[in-house]
C-alpha cells in the first residue's frame, strides 16, 4: 500500500458512550477521504463494534483509535491494554439464538468481519489491536 497521506491516533476514555465519539470521528475521516455514504455507515458500525470490544476488555482508563488514510483504503486500528480477547470459534447462529440454545449476544466480531475488507486481531505487549482495512471501492476486493 502506498504511503499514507494522513494518519492520527485518537484517545478516548474507556467508558460507555466514548465509542460513539470514536465512530463519528472516523466517519468524518472517511467522508473527507471520499467514501460513499453507504460505505461510511458500514465503517461507522465496524469501528463502533471494535471500540465496544476495547471498552469491554480494557484494563486502563482509555483506549486509542489510530487511522491512516490511503488513496485506495482507510486503515483503522483500535487498541486497548488488557487481557487478550477470547474470540468465538464459530459464526453466530441466529436460529439457535432464536430457540434459546445460544445467548442472543455475540455479533460484534461477525459484523466487523462482514463490514471491513480485511480484519486481523493481535495481542502484543499487553495491547490488543483490532486492525481493519476498508477499501474505497470494496467491489474490487474480497472481504476476509
Amino acid at each position: 500500500m502506498e504511503q499514507s497521506s494522513d494518519s492520527e491516533e485518537l484517545r478516548f476514555l474507556a467508558k460507555s458512550g466514548e465509542e460513539a465519539l470514536a465512530r463519528e470521528d472516523i466517519a468524518r475521516v472517511a467522508a473527507a477521504a471520499g467514501f460513499e455514504p453507504e460505505r461510511i455507515e458500514e465503517i461507522r458500525t465496524a469501528v463502533n463494534e471494535a471500540c465496544l470490544n476495547a471498552l469491554e476488555h480494557s484494563d486502563s482508563r482509555s483506549f486509542t483509535v489510530w487511522y491512516s488514510v490511503h488513496r485506495t483504503a482507510l486503515i483503522v486500528e483500535v487498541r486497548n491494554s488488557g487481557q487478550p480477547f477470547r474470540m468465538p470459534e464459530s459464526t453466530p447462529d441466529l436460529a439457535a439464538k432464536m430457540e434459546g440454545e445460544q445467548p442472543p449476544r455475540g455479533w460484534g466480531l461477525y459484523l466487523m468481519r462482514r463490514l471491513c475488507n480485511r480484519l486481523s486481531m493481535s495481542h502484543k505487549g499487553g495491547i490488543n489491536v483490532i486492525h481493519m482495512e476498508f477499501d474505497v471501492h470494496p467491489a474490487h476486493s474480497h472481504r476476509t
Binding site: L52, K97, M98, G106, W107, L111
Partner: peptide, 18 residues
C-alpha cells in the same frame, strides 16, 4: 443507531414473541 448489543435485545424480543 443500533449496536450489536441493541440488536441482541431485538433478537431476544423476537424470540420471546415467536
Amino acid at each position: 443507531y443500533l449496536n450489536s448489543a441493541g440488536i441482541a435485545l431485538l433478537i431476544a424480543l423476537v424470540s420471546q414473541a415467536r
